[in-house]
Design a protein around this nucleic acid. Structure first.
Lengths: 133, 133
DNA sequence: CGGGATCCGTAAAGATACTG
DNA sequence: CAGTATCTTTACGGATCCCG
């Protein structure tokens, strides 16, 4: 979020930070990536093009409608491509676009972070919840 | 059974990829970061400890309630600390914890990505929206 | 000053049933 | 097979009033 290159450590000088509008953009991306099914779908599509029903089976627990909605969102943002093969029965393959792949790469560190810090997060929650019963 | 179709991209070792269960965790983190105000608050707190009203002014457009709710969530997850100075009038400073700072560092690449690809995303949306009127 | 509590409107989630 | 349509439910977010 902060645009300076270089240093990794604690203090972050101001200026050079994203303005309010840019935050909305970032938030939009995070919100899309953070909705209930998107990352699951993105992950599975990372294995290669997949058909609708295969996707639904792979995700597990997603309703048809939510899969459709999720795919539409991802498609709209140019993260996923949709290829129709008119046959009988019809066949539709979804795949990651290069944009989608690049997003996956960038979100991956967050996965690492979440795994590395899950204990801390859960601990913090337990402490917090215990504090004000 | 994991991701990674080779592409034009950097390498992501298989062992670092998330399995199905971990996706829920990652999604939780992304959803928290992606809610309407969190990244704004995180950014401002990155500049240093800030009081409630200063935060509200800095964010701009957030209601008192949503700021409170957002701060409680961040605090619960251990991303933000809350320090009360009992005086008159009372003073409460919020600050990033080290966990919060580390999250900011990890989410920063997404900010970069969003900015770098905003044109592509917007273009994709326009194309998508134009396609099925 | 820094909230908590409550109410309300909207928008998104989700299941189910139906269709080309 | 791959959706769309319809409906119900839930969560988000804003406004307002109140309190220590």
């Amino acid at each position: 979020m902060n645009v300076r290159a270089g240093g990794q450590d604690g203090e972050i000088p101001d200026e050079n930070l994203l303005d309010h509008d840019d935050c909305a953009l970032v938030r939009g991306v995070l919100a899309r990536a953070g909705d209930k099914w998107s990352i699951l779908v993105l992950r599975i599509l990372g294995d290669g093009p997949t058909r609708f029903n295969a996707l639904q089976r792979a995700v597990g627990g997603i309703s048809q409608r939510m899969l459709t909605v999720t795919l539409r969102h991802l498609e709209r943002d140019g993260l996923v491509s949709r290829e129709v093969t008119p046959s009988k029965p019809p066949r539709v393959d979804y795949a990651l676009t290069s944009l989608g792949q690049s997003l996956r790469e960038v979100t991956e560190p967050i996965g690492q972070w979440a795994l590395a810090n899950r204990g801390e997060i859960e601990g913090a929650r337990i402490r917090y919840d215990a504090a004000d019963l």
